[in-house]
Structure formats: structure tokens, C-alpha cells
Amino acid sequence: MKRAFSSSSLVEYSSSEDEDDTEKSVKRKKLPTLSASLVVAAPVDNPSLHQGRKRNTPHVDGQWAAHVFISLGLNRKSPLFSLLSEAIKSAKDDVPTLNDFWSKDGDTAPELHVSLSRPIYLRAYQREDLKRAVKSLALTHPRFTISFSTFSELTNDERTRAFLTIEVGAGHHQLSQLSTALAPTLQSFRQKDYYAEPRFHASIAWALLDETSPSESHTQFLTVPGIPSRSIDKLNKKYQSGLSESMNFYDADTLCVKIGKDVFSWHLKGP
């Protein structure tokens, strides 16, 4: 038997339905669009702004590029700076596209960086952990002496750039100890250790390498297949003895980590 409803109950039901519709309408109302000034744009990889250099790892929001290195100050009036400047000028006879690291910043004191890690990619919450680890290394490892023994060519892992480098002579053992001590921290971040047989060095100039894929070629920047071995041989024949002279020994006393654009440094333990 059908159930009868009073008119009053029908009115109450209709009123309740209207309230539900009104509530849904409020919930579905869109929030206002953020002002363009408040939206942070993702970095654009534009090689034309960086002498043809390309980002080797795509940008990821919340990810920070970092690396650890020993910093050696290089006085522009020092014998080593003069020697390196002459060597770069000589190398440009064979590789005119070489770019040094100092000429654009004439008012800035040049530095030599001896890397202790590959490029590291951190999440935001890992930045402080890396800084603490590097600081701990500095507090527990004594300062030491570094010299350079030979010119060489090295390339990055992606083979997009060739580097003219000076390889470490004295100090190699201590650099290896620092790199080994850093490895557990890198492993905890799921990052690669430094190379199994590291060639500790400081880069002094670079050139773009030929691309393996024509579709990815640098259309407006000259590239090279590499720095010719004859050029490296010429540099070592002319400058190697001066490179390794006692006046070009340096105190390695500053350990650094660069995270994004910020550099943090600590002095190694004193004698």
C-alpha cells in the first residue's frame, strides 16, 4: 500500500534539498588564480646564456645540485697564475674555443677547485645533512700541502665538455682519504661515490665537445672532438717543470660545499 505524505513534509524535503545544493555550490567554487608575480617559474635550459653549456640533469622542483671540493686561492700576481695563463694561451693555438674560468671576473680573486665528489643532487631536507657531514670532515682531517704535476685533458661523464686540467701531485693521498670519508654520506643520499681510481685535479679551461646526435648539436657554438694530445704534450714539455716547482705548493686548508648558488666553507683541522 502506498504511503501518503503530508504537504508540510513535502515542503520540508524540498527545503533540505535546496540547502544541500547551496552547500555543494559553495564547496565547488574555484579559488582565485594566483598572481603571476607569486608563481616561481622553473629554470629554462638556454645554452645561449651560458656559452653553449647545457644542463646535464633536467631541473626537478625541490632538487638542489651540489658538490664538495677543496678551494685554493690563486693570486693574480703569483708565478702559478702567470704560468697557467700562458699555458691556456698556448693551448688556444690548437683549440681556439677554449674558455678559461677567470677572464670574465677580472675583479674577483681566482680560485682552483679540487673536487672530492661528482655532482650531487639533494632534496631540500638533505642540505643541512650534507653541510654537517662536510663540516665534520673539516674538523677531523688535518690540513695538508697540494702541488700540481702535469697537464691533462678530462671530460665530464656526459661527454658534453672537455676540460684542460692540472693534476695533483703532492696531496693525492690526503684527498683520497677525504673522498673516502665522504662516501657513506653520499651513499645515504643514493648518490654515486667519487671515482674508484680518482684523478684529483683542478680545471683551468673548457671547450664544448661534439655532440653524438646531430639533432642535439650546438647550432651557434663551435665544438671540438677534444683537446689534441699534441697540445697536451706541448704544454707538459714547456710548462711541467715550472708547474711542479716548490713555489707552486699550496696549503689545502679550506673544505667547501656548493649547494645551488651558495658556497659554505670550513677550515681543516690545524696542526
Rank of each mutant, 00 (worst) to 15 (best):
R3Q: 12
S7D: 15
S8D: 08
V11F: 09
V11I: 09
Y13C: 03
D18T: 05
D20F: 02
D20P: 03
K24W: 10
S25Q: 13
S25I: 00
K27M: 07
L31R: 00
L31S: 12
S35C: 05
S37C: 12
L38I: 04
V39H: 12
V40T: 15
P43K: 05
D45K: 08
G52R: 05
R53A: 09
D61K: 07
Q63I: 02
V68N: 06
V68C: 13
L72H: 08
G73D: 11
R76S: 08
S78W: 09
L80W: 11
S82I: 09
L83S: 08
L84Y: 00
L84N: 04
S90C: 01
A91M: 00
D93E: 13
D93Q: 14
D94A: 14
P96V: 01
N99C: 06
D100P: 00
A109C: 01
L112H: 04
S115M: 12
P119I: 00
I120V: 15
L122I: 11
R132W: 01
V134H: 01
L137I: 13
T140Q: 14
T140I: 12
F144C: 13
D157I: 04
T160S: 12
A162D: 12
L164Y: 01
G171D: 02
H172S: 15
H172P: 04
L182F: 06
L186F: 04
Q187H: 14
Q191D: 14
E197L: 10
W206Q: 01
T212H: 10
S217R: 15
F221L: 01
T223Q: 03
V224C: 11
P225A: 03
G226M: 09
P228T: 08
Y239G: 07
G242M: 05
G242R: 10
L243H: 04
L243N: 11
E245M: 13
M247L: 12
F249P: 04
Y250G: 04
Y250L: 10
Y250C: 07
K258S: 14
I259Y: 03
V263W: 05
V263F: 00
